[in-house]
Design a protein around this nucleic acid. Structure first.
Length: 196
DNA sequence: TACAGGATACTCT
DNA sequence: GAGTATCCTGTAA
Protein backbone atom coordinates (compact mmCIF):
# COMPACT_ATOMS: atom_id res chain seq x y z
CA UNK A 1 0.00 0.00 0.00
CA UNK A 2 1.67 3.19 -1.13
CA UNK A 3 -0.73 5.43 0.73
CA UNK A 4 -3.57 5.00 3.12
CA UNK A 5 -6.98 4.66 1.53
CA UNK A 6 -9.66 6.26 3.61
CA UNK A 7 -12.85 4.22 3.44
CA UNK A 8 -16.09 6.16 3.25
CA UNK A 9 -18.29 6.29 6.34
CA UNK A 10 -21.99 5.84 7.06
CA UNK A 11 -22.75 9.53 6.51
CA UNK A 12 -21.60 9.24 2.91
CA UNK A 13 -23.99 6.38 2.19
CA UNK A 14 -26.84 8.12 3.98
CA UNK A 15 -27.26 10.82 1.35
CA UNK A 16 -30.16 10.53 -1.13
CA UNK A 17 -29.66 7.72 -3.63
CA UNK A 18 -29.35 10.01 -6.67
CA UNK A 19 -26.71 12.11 -4.90
CA UNK A 20 -24.91 8.98 -3.78
CA UNK A 21 -24.81 7.64 -7.35
CA UNK A 22 -23.12 10.86 -8.45
CA UNK A 23 -20.82 11.01 -5.43
CA UNK A 24 -19.59 7.47 -6.04
CA UNK A 25 -18.12 8.46 -9.41
CA UNK A 26 -14.36 8.80 -9.02
CA UNK A 27 -14.28 6.83 -5.77
CA UNK A 28 -12.14 3.71 -5.46
CA UNK A 29 -13.77 0.30 -5.20
CA UNK A 30 -11.40 -2.04 -3.36
CA UNK A 31 -11.54 -5.82 -2.96
CA UNK A 32 -9.02 -7.78 -0.92
CA UNK A 33 -8.55 -11.50 -1.54
CA UNK A 34 -5.89 -14.07 -0.80
CA UNK A 35 -4.48 -13.34 -4.26
CA UNK A 36 -3.91 -9.71 -3.35
CA UNK A 37 -5.66 -6.35 -3.51
CA UNK A 38 -7.52 -5.21 -6.59
CA UNK A 39 -9.20 -1.85 -7.00
CA UNK A 40 -10.57 0.58 -9.54
CA UNK A 41 -12.08 4.04 -9.94
CA UNK A 42 -15.84 3.98 -10.30
CA UNK A 43 -16.74 5.59 -13.63
CA UNK A 44 -20.38 4.58 -14.13
CA UNK A 45 -23.36 4.05 -11.81
CA UNK A 46 -27.14 3.69 -11.90
CA UNK A 47 -29.64 4.61 -9.19
CA UNK A 48 -32.56 2.34 -8.29
CA UNK A 49 -35.26 3.93 -6.21
CA UNK A 50 -36.91 0.92 -4.63
CA UNK A 51 -40.59 1.22 -3.93
CA UNK A 52 -41.48 3.56 -6.80
CA UNK A 53 -39.02 2.29 -9.40
CA UNK A 54 -40.43 -0.39 -11.67
CA UNK A 55 -36.93 -1.37 -12.79
CA UNK A 56 -35.76 -2.12 -9.25
CA UNK A 57 -35.96 -5.57 -7.71
CA UNK A 58 -37.52 -3.94 -4.68
CA UNK A 59 -40.35 -2.30 -6.66
CA UNK A 60 -43.50 -1.99 -4.52
CA UNK A 61 -41.40 -3.09 -1.55
CA UNK A 62 -41.14 -6.61 -2.89
CA UNK A 63 -39.15 -8.38 -0.23
CA UNK A 64 -37.54 -11.75 -0.92
CA UNK A 65 -34.50 -13.58 0.26
CA UNK A 66 -32.62 -11.94 -2.62
CA UNK A 67 -33.71 -8.33 -2.01
CA UNK A 68 -33.69 -8.65 1.78
CA UNK A 69 -30.43 -6.73 2.12
CA UNK A 70 -31.88 -3.68 0.33
CA UNK A 71 -34.15 -3.11 3.31
CA UNK A 72 -31.14 -2.95 5.62
CA UNK A 73 -29.05 0.12 6.43
CA UNK A 74 -27.13 2.06 3.74
CA UNK A 75 -23.60 0.98 2.84
CA UNK A 76 -24.38 -2.73 2.62
CA UNK A 77 -23.32 -4.94 -0.29
CA UNK A 78 -26.07 -6.26 -2.57
CA UNK A 79 -24.77 -8.80 -5.07
CA UNK A 80 -27.07 -10.44 -7.56
CA UNK A 81 -26.46 -13.16 -10.11
CA UNK A 82 -27.68 -12.44 -13.60
CA UNK A 83 -27.36 -15.55 -15.77
CA UNK A 84 -23.74 -16.56 -15.32
CA UNK A 85 -22.62 -13.17 -14.10
CA UNK A 86 -22.58 -11.37 -10.80
CA UNK A 87 -23.60 -7.72 -10.38
CA UNK A 88 -22.78 -5.50 -7.43
CA UNK A 89 -24.91 -2.77 -5.85
CA UNK A 90 -24.41 -0.35 -2.97
CA UNK A 91 -27.46 -0.29 -0.70
CA UNK A 92 -28.72 3.22 0.07
CA UNK A 93 -31.78 4.76 1.64
CA UNK A 94 -32.79 4.34 5.26
CA UNK A 95 -33.77 1.04 6.89
CA UNK A 96 -36.95 -0.29 5.21
CA UNK A 97 -36.32 2.05 2.28
CA UNK A 98 -35.03 -0.38 -0.37
CA UNK A 99 -32.88 1.79 -2.64
CA UNK A 100 -29.52 0.98 -4.22
CA UNK A 101 -26.82 2.13 -6.62
CA UNK A 102 -25.60 -0.29 -9.27
CA UNK A 103 -21.90 -0.05 -10.07
CA UNK A 104 -21.76 -0.45 -13.84
CA UNK A 105 -18.10 0.18 -14.65
CA UNK A 106 -14.71 0.92 -13.08
CA UNK A 107 -11.30 1.98 -14.35
CA UNK A 108 -8.59 -0.49 -13.20
CA UNK A 109 -6.23 0.93 -10.59
CA UNK A 110 -4.41 -1.52 -8.32
CA UNK A 111 -3.68 -5.20 -8.88
CA UNK A 112 -4.20 -5.02 -12.61
CA UNK A 113 -2.12 -8.16 -13.21
CA UNK A 114 -4.47 -10.09 -10.91
CA UNK A 115 -7.50 -8.82 -12.81
CA UNK A 116 -5.96 -9.87 -16.11
CA UNK A 117 -5.35 -13.30 -14.62
CA UNK A 118 -9.03 -13.61 -13.74
CA UNK A 119 -10.20 -12.10 -17.01
CA UNK A 120 -7.79 -12.54 -19.92
CA UNK A 121 -8.84 -9.95 -22.50
CA UNK A 122 -7.39 -8.76 -25.77
CA UNK A 123 -8.47 -5.16 -25.33
CA UNK A 124 -7.47 -3.68 -22.00
CA UNK A 125 -10.48 -1.38 -21.90
CA UNK A 126 -12.66 -4.48 -22.05
CA UNK A 127 -11.43 -5.56 -18.63
CA UNK A 128 -13.93 -3.73 -16.45
CA UNK A 129 -16.28 -1.89 -18.86
CA UNK A 130 -19.50 -3.49 -17.66
CA UNK A 131 -21.23 -4.56 -14.44
CA UNK A 132 -20.58 -8.28 -14.91
CA UNK A 133 -17.04 -7.72 -16.09
CA UNK A 134 -15.84 -5.65 -13.18
CA UNK A 135 -17.13 -8.09 -10.58
CA UNK A 136 -15.17 -10.91 -12.15
CA UNK A 137 -12.04 -8.78 -12.52
CA UNK A 138 -12.20 -7.63 -8.89
CA UNK A 139 -13.19 -11.05 -7.59
CA UNK A 140 -16.59 -9.96 -6.24
CA UNK A 141 -19.02 -12.87 -5.83
CA UNK A 142 -22.16 -13.86 -3.94
CA UNK A 143 -19.83 -14.47 -1.01
CA UNK A 144 -19.87 -10.71 -0.56
CA UNK A 145 -23.66 -10.49 -0.32
CA UNK A 146 -24.80 -8.87 2.90
CA UNK A 147 -21.38 -7.53 3.87
CA UNK A 148 -20.63 -3.87 4.52
CA UNK A 149 -18.74 -1.46 2.26
CA UNK A 150 -17.37 0.21 5.38
CA UNK A 151 -14.54 -2.26 5.93
CA UNK A 152 -12.41 -4.93 4.19
CA UNK A 153 -12.40 -7.21 2.34
CA UNK A 154 -14.75 -5.13 0.18
CA UNK A 155 -14.94 -1.40 0.64
CA UNK A 156 -15.01 1.97 -1.13
CA UNK A 157 -12.44 4.70 -0.56
CA UNK A 158 -12.30 8.37 -1.42
CA UNK A 159 -10.80 8.98 -4.84
CA UNK A 160 -10.47 11.79 -7.30
CA UNK A 161 -13.48 13.93 -7.93
CA UNK A 162 -14.59 13.95 -11.56
CA UNK A 163 -14.75 17.34 -13.27
CA UNK A 164 -17.89 16.55 -15.19
CA UNK A 165 -20.74 14.09 -14.75
CA UNK A 166 -22.94 12.90 -17.60
CA UNK A 167 -26.51 11.75 -17.04
CA UNK A 168 -28.87 9.63 -19.11
CA UNK A 169 -31.25 6.71 -19.34
CA UNK A 170 -30.46 3.42 -17.70
CA UNK A 171 -29.49 0.31 -19.60
CA UNK A 172 -31.02 -3.14 -19.96
CA UNK A 173 -34.43 -2.42 -18.45
CA UNK A 174 -36.62 -2.15 -21.55
CA UNK A 175 -39.42 -4.14 -19.95
CA UNK A 176 -39.82 -1.83 -17.01
CA UNK A 177 -42.66 0.38 -18.22
CA UNK A 178 -42.22 4.11 -17.85
CA UNK A 179 -39.27 3.58 -15.50
CA UNK A 180 -37.10 2.79 -18.52
CA UNK A 181 -36.88 6.48 -19.37
CA UNK A 182 -35.82 7.69 -15.94
CA UNK A 183 -32.43 9.47 -16.28
CA UNK A 184 -30.82 7.68 -13.35
CA UNK A 185 -27.59 6.63 -15.02
CA UNK A 186 -24.45 8.62 -14.32
CA UNK A 187 -20.97 8.34 -15.80
CA UNK A 188 -17.72 10.22 -16.30
CA UNK A 189 -17.67 11.59 -19.88
CA UNK A 190 -14.93 10.45 -22.25
CA UNK A 191 -13.75 7.68 -19.97
CA UNK A 192 -12.90 4.60 -22.08
CA UNK A 193 -14.04 2.19 -19.36
CA UNK A 194 -17.67 3.33 -19.36
CA UNK A 195 -19.86 0.55 -20.82
CA UNK A 196 -21.28 0.99 -24.28
C1' DT B 1 -26.69 -10.01 -35.27
C1' DA B 2 -27.99 -13.97 -32.85
C1' DC B 3 -27.76 -17.01 -29.05
C1' DA B 4 -26.55 -19.75 -25.19
C1' DG B 5 -25.31 -19.83 -20.44
C1' DG B 6 -27.76 -21.34 -15.73
C1' DA B 7 -29.04 -18.37 -10.57
C1' DT B 8 -33.07 -16.63 -8.68
C1' DA B 9 -37.94 -15.78 -8.46
C1' DC B 10 -42.44 -15.07 -10.22
C1' DT B 11 -46.66 -17.15 -12.39
C1' DC B 12 -49.08 -20.38 -13.73
C1' DT B 13 -50.51 -25.67 -13.70
C1' DG C 1 -42.72 -28.72 -11.01
C1' DA C 2 -42.70 -26.45 -15.67
C1' DG C 3 -42.37 -22.20 -18.18
C1' DT C 4 -40.79 -17.47 -18.51
C1' DA C 5 -38.08 -13.31 -17.37
C1' DT C 6 -34.10 -10.83 -15.72
C1' DC C 7 -29.94 -4.35 -13.47
C1' DC C 8 -25.35 -9.40 -18.96
C1' DT C 9 -21.38 -11.17 -21.72
C1' DG C 10 -18.56 -14.14 -24.81
C1' DT C 11 -18.52 -16.51 -28.90
C1' DA C 12 -19.60 -17.55 -33.42
C1' DA C 13 -21.42 -16.41 -37.97
Amino acid sequence: MDWHLQSLDVDFYSQPTIDLAKSLLGCILVKETKDGITSGFIVETEAYLGEYDQAAHSYRNRRTKRTEIMFDQPGMVYTYTMHTHCLVNVVSGKVNQPEAVLIRAVEPYRGIHIMLQRRPVKKFQNLTSGPGKLTKALGITMEDYGQSFLEPPLYIAKGKKPGKIAQGKRIGIDNSGEARDYPYRFWIPNNPFVSK
